[in-house]
């Protein structure tokens, strides 16, 4: 590849890592194994962010996805799987149509990507450092930045309300 900032070997290794882990998430029978494969997939995505010079995003990805979201999902698995017993069917009845549909979409879009020439694309890395991101978060993106704290608070209260056991019922 003639592009200065693109590292083909690192990219292909990480891309293969991500795709293998993602296929594992979708196809593995044991849901705990799927969750572990998902952790590996998130780690690969963090490596892709580091390759794209988005170091802050790579750290945030490891903190939030690998650290928090995976643990929440594993907790939900442990809370629900204990009494469900063995499952006979892992795929639903529409899964016969889902495979050609997703493979078809992937084929069409990748054919379009390979043939198309995206306008205004350079090969120089442009992603901002932590300094520029924090400045942007507190100047031009300050409204969504404040709004998202409200969203997080609402989600926290909503999750507690939804998952709480009603005392008056039993």
């Amino acid at each position: 590849m003639p592009h200065g900032d693109f590292q083909p070997i690192a990219f292909s290794v990480i891309a293969a890592w991500i795709l293998v882990a993602a296929v594992g998430v979708v196809t593995l029978r044991n849901i705990v194994h799927s969750a572990i494969a998902m952790v590996f997939c998130f780690l690969g995505v963090a490596a892709i962010y580091a390759l794209l010079h988005a170091e802050l995003l790579a750290i945030v990805q490891i903190l939030i996805y690998v650290g928090a979201i995976s643990v929440v999902i594993l907790f939900a698995i442990m809370l629900t799987e204990a009494q469900s017993g063995p499952v006979a069917m892992f795929f639903n009845r529409q899964s016969i149509f889902a495979l050609p549909l997703s493979v078809g979409v992937a084929g069409v879009v990748s054919a379009a990507l390979i043939s198309a020439q995206l306008p205004g694309v350079g090969s120089k890395a442009l992603n901002p450092g932590v300094w520029q991101i924090s400045k942007a978060l507190l100047s031009e993106a300050v409204f969504p930045f404040e709004l998202i704290s409200l969203v997080l608070l609402a989600a926290m209260i909503g999750a507690i309300l939804l998952a709480r056991r009603e005392e008056e019922d039993r």
């Binding site: 900032d5 795709l19 979708v26 889902a98 549909l101 997703s102 990748s110 990507l113």
Partner: peptide, 24 residues
């Protein structure tokens, strides 16, 4: 270079979409 990243993103998206459509 950006095309390779977009290709990876598209494949990951399709794998995820298959999982959403097919799993129980």
């Amino acid at each position: 270079a950006v095309d390779w990243y977009l290709l990876l993103a598209m494949l990951l998206f399709c794998i995820g979409a298959y999982g959403v459509l097919a799993r129980r």
